[in-house]
């Protein structure tokens, strides 16, 4: 028999991890952000449990500021997978009208970090799958596949359980929870190739199209709805753009591109010279900022 290809190996490992969680955890959930990594992770989950639907719900921690096209795909993907979709919005953030234009870092804190904690507590989820990859960012490169969080959802990088062979230990004390990263060993290119090979549907924003944009602080932002406050004299300009990563639309920079097909996107990605997270405003502050955010409970 020929060797397994790297994608077959990665998929087999991710499936094994997902099944272990289902066998060991009491109340697992899959965090679903609608991005390409989530799409690949959801696809692996469908394969892991076929012909059963994945035996856990999808959770989207919503900020109300995602791209409209993401909301559309969210409903469709959950329905096709035969899974329950839980959408959680932090009620305090909603009441205070927290938004990325007026509230800066508080937006991420309240909607995402706090919202996630609240949702996990509310439904009593003891294990949450996330689509993070180790190649994304330095502190993620050191995180285990099974990553424990204290009752306060904190990560202690100095005190990680040894994770040996594929013998995953999901035992935990009452109140503790686990973040599980089944896609840890995939790279951005692996994800794209898998999407191509398995014909996985992704949000059209990943492909170039003419879109209304404005330039702010070095980021090219898309005017996705009427809530986008335009400055004095600022006019949206139609540019052919696409997104390498998707989040809240006012925080996610587009790149100018003509790559309208999957092959062209992968081609552009391979020839590109800046790394994926550069389009995200969140990492720009200090180079160790992600590590700090995670210690506070960011996914």
């Amino acid at each position: 028999m020929p060797s397994l290809t790297h994608l077959q190996q990665l998929e087999a490992e991710s499936i094994e991890i997902m099944r272990e969680v289902v066998a060991q955890a009491e109340n697992p959930v899959m965090l679903y952000s609608v991005g390409k990594d989530s799409a690949a992770m959801l696809h692996v989950a469908k394969k892991a449990f076929f012909p059963s639907p994945p035996p856990f719900p999808l959770l989207h921690v919503d900020t109300t500021w995602k791209f409209q096209e993401m909301y559309k795909l969210r409903e469709k993907a959950a329905k096709e997978a035969g899974m329950e979709l839980i959408v959680y919005k932090n009620p305090e953030a909603e009441a205070q009208g927290i938004n990325p234009f007026d509230h800066g870092p508080l937006h991420t804190d309240m909607w995402k970090t706090e919202g996630l904690k609240q949702a996990l507590d509310k439904y009593g989820f003891d294990a949450a799958f996330g689509g993070a990859r180790r190649d994304e960012e330095k502190s993620r490169a050191k995180e285990r596949v099974f990553s424990f969080r204290s009752e306060n959802h904190q990560w202690d990088p100095k005190n990680q359980r040894p994770e040996i062979w594929s013998l995953y230990n999901a035992r935990k004390a009452k109140g503790e929870s686990i973040r599980v990263f089944p896609m840890s060993n995939w790279t951005e290119l692996d994800i794209w190739q898998y999407i191509r090979l398995e014909n996985i549907e992704i949000v059209p924003l990943y492909f170039a199209a003419p879109r209304p944009t404005v330039e702010r602080d070095g980021l090219l932002l898309m005017v996705d709805d009427e809530r986008f406050p335009l400055n004095e004299g600022e006019e949206p300009v139609t540019r052919s753009v696409r997104f390498r990563t998707l989040g809240c639309y006012p925080l996610t920079g587009a790149v100018e591109s003509e790559a309208a097909s999957l092959n062209e996107v992968i081609q552009e990605m391979l020839l590109t010279t800046t790394s994926e997270r550069q389009g995200r405003a969140i990492d720009h502050d200090a180079s160790a900022s992600m590590e700090k955010k995670k210690q506070q409970g960011y996914f």
Partner: peptide, 19 residues
């Protein structure tokens, strides 16, 4: 050398995975 604490000490204190 990933984690901030390590960068300050100039040593690697955990397993880091690279691709």
């Amino acid at each position: 050398d990933g984690l901030a604490a390590e960068r300050e000490q100039g040593i690697t204190i955990d397993v880091a995975y690279r691709f």
